[in-house]
Amino acid sequence: MNLFHAEDPLLQVHNVTRYYGDRIGCSEVSFDLWPGEVLAIVGESGSGKTTLLNCLSTRLAPTAGAIEYRMRDGAMRNLYQLTEAERRLLMRTDWGFVHQNAADGLRMNVSAGANVGERLMAVGARHYGNIRSTADDWLGRVEIDNERIDDDPRSFSGGMRQRLQIARNLVTQPRLVFMDEPTGGLDVSVQARLLDLLRRLVADLGLSVVIVTHDLAVARLLSHRIMVMRHGNVIEAGLTDQVLDDPREPYTQLLVSSILQV
């Protein structure tokens, strides 16, 4: 599927624990993520999903545990032993992070083209024409009208902002993308279109994704595997279809049964 044999995991998480003082953010979470795999983390608000995602993406240091990542040279590295410079390079080349609120992930006061081009310029692209044509290409891939390339994201709708954020993250061809409720706050039809787009991009690019969502439908559509969290613990994990069709834990059963049927 990728540079590596499918038996080599891309990300290995060992007993990641995060305390906020006496309170538990997430506790003893372990899993492996393989190249090209989409993992959904579901659970209600306050269950530790976002804490876990922030720990994984080096935005929040865990209290205990280790996270290893297979770098492009094939070596496994402990993320919290990387230097700040290595970590930043990783975050802007090999990784992506899609925020729930697009404004957190975009530069709202520079044009869409500059937003997409920023990562390229950060890794040394110095040819305006090339940067612009790459940005142009990526706007097309996320279905944003090319005429909007010089417009600020402020003038974009919520769905467009979210797609722009995705383009901005994918422009350096990352291998691992973290997503925090990427469809939150969007109306249903826009959500459906975004999910469709995400599914296509993930499949085309062979991305590995860790996606946090409270929306089981999103998990069902996008993910191969699912982890259900409650009170900071992973209470159930498995193939998405298996867990959602035949939940074992009472809490998962409750979650699945609380989906509104129209």
Partner: peptide
């Protein structure tokens, strides 16, 4: 980490 400086120049040209 100076990529941002070029973002400003990019904006100028755009």
């Amino acid at each position: 980490d100076y990529g941002l400086m070029h973002v400003k120049l990019y904006e100028d040209i755009a």
